[in-house]
Design a protein around this nucleic acid. Structure first.
Lengths: 239, 239
DNA sequence: GAGTGGTCTAGACCACATC
DNA sequence: ATGTGGTCTAGACCACTCA
């Protein structure tokens, strides 16, 4: 029915599927057509469709649900930096993390950000955000978003922001973050961070620079998070 | 020919293959039999064998070589902690990292180590090791190895150790490390670390605790590495 | 029970590495 | 040229989800 291009293998199918996601034909969080119907549509065997889907599932673009459907991933959710803090370890687990938007403004592109993100945009949405636990500020975050794509956040009031940003990106801007790269470094706390966190300037601080990627593998967010180094414990897997 | 057990799916095949690796029937770094011969041996279709192999390849146990063979992984090699240091970034890249074994001894199991590794052994091989760049000490490492398995390292002289430990584990003890979990934290440098690194006690320090896993997914090494926090930059991917 | 993804088969042909 | 892994097919049957 639809297969317009010359067919050259399941990788081409994966590309075609990706294109549908990008075009919005397969919306974020929604189910894609069944394997059987795709096989018919593209004129290939079921196994070939399955191989293409398996690859995209592996990359985190699609999520398979046995007996139900295969869906377009709606991205990361519980990946907050807050999980690296070891405050109140013995305390009750019922702590509700809070988020407070301090400021939102538009700024011109900065060179250092363009360098790590490869963004060619001219202006950025810069969001200043505080993360708290039991009303105590733990993380001072600065978030940079490319403006064409995230313009719907531009006019929002701080109170209209949700606690978790990634799910909010999906709803407000149709962007799903499925992968990120973190850089964890150490520094002496700068005045601005110290003020926001109610700590002393020069106190040992941890700084995490994160670049987040969407379903197409393109960088969609740059974030810098600063907190108390002595209470931070980062964990990661190495392969 | 060999299929002794009741066959219940490709996951059972994966288990059987893993068992062969563990038993040494398929030696580390060596090629396993061809897919066709395995299909015949186990009395299943080629595709089923391929699925089992794909799973183990995904887990890092096997490595596929198109046109050649599928091999048992010989593990990580270039995963040194030294890669997180940003000394002489503009300098020539030709820096040869060095490693110096300071001390080797046998110690009784420590509770905190048993807690994170689940080891039930009674004694450990404790290796004190220094990592240097241009003769400058950057990392002070303490490595704990369970003793039955690593007894062949016990009698070695410091000079007989190689620069990279993981490849050495393969050769000397038939253990391949294919995965690890890192925990990155900050602390004020303790006297012993400061002395080893030629720094001042109380200087900001980074500490990485690592648990390394072998082909069977079992923890085989616990390591604690301390360095100058100001020169450290850890990077990781988030999924 | 209908529909979906998961497993398996038997066989064909392609792509790569090696001699 | 031979042997290995990689791709694809067409069809069967199983396992899970949900109305």
């Amino acid at each position: 029915m639809a297969g317009n291009k010359t067919y050259r293998g399941y990788q081409d199918l994966a590309v075609a599927f990706r294109a549908r996601v990008e075009a919005g034909a397969w919306p974020i969080g929604g189910a894609i057509p069944s394997e059987a119907s795709l096989a018919e549509e593209f004129g290939v065997a079921l196994g070939t469709i399955r191989q293409a889907i398996a690859q995209l599932a592996q990359e985190g673009v699609l999520v398979k649900r046995h007996g139900k459907s295969t869906e377009v991933s709606s991205g990361l959710s519980g990946q907050s930096m807050l999980r690296f803090f070891r405050y109140q370890l013995d305390d009750h687990r019922q702590l509700v993390p809070q988020a407070k938007i301090v400021a939102i403004k538009i700024v011109p592109m900065e060179k250092r950000i363009a360098a790590v993100t490869n963004w060619a945009f001219k202006s950025l949405l810069k969001i200043h955000r505080l993360r708290l636990l039991k009303d105590r500020p733990l993380l001072n975050e600065t978030i940079y978003l490319p403006l064409p794509k995230f313009k719907r956040l531009q006019g929002l009031k701080p109170s209209e922001f949700e606690e978790l940003l990634y799910p909010m990106y999906v709803k407000a801007c149709n962007v799903a973050v499925i992968r990120a790269k973190d850089q964890v470094g150490f520094e002496l706390m700068k005045r601005a961070d110290a003020k926001a966190l109610n700590m002393k300037e020069g106190h040992p601080a941890v700084r995490v620079h994160r670049v987040a990627f969407d379903l197409m593998g393109k960088p969609v967010e740059y974030r810098s998070s600063v907190g108390d180094a002595m209470a931070f414990e980062y964990s990661a897997e190495v392969y």
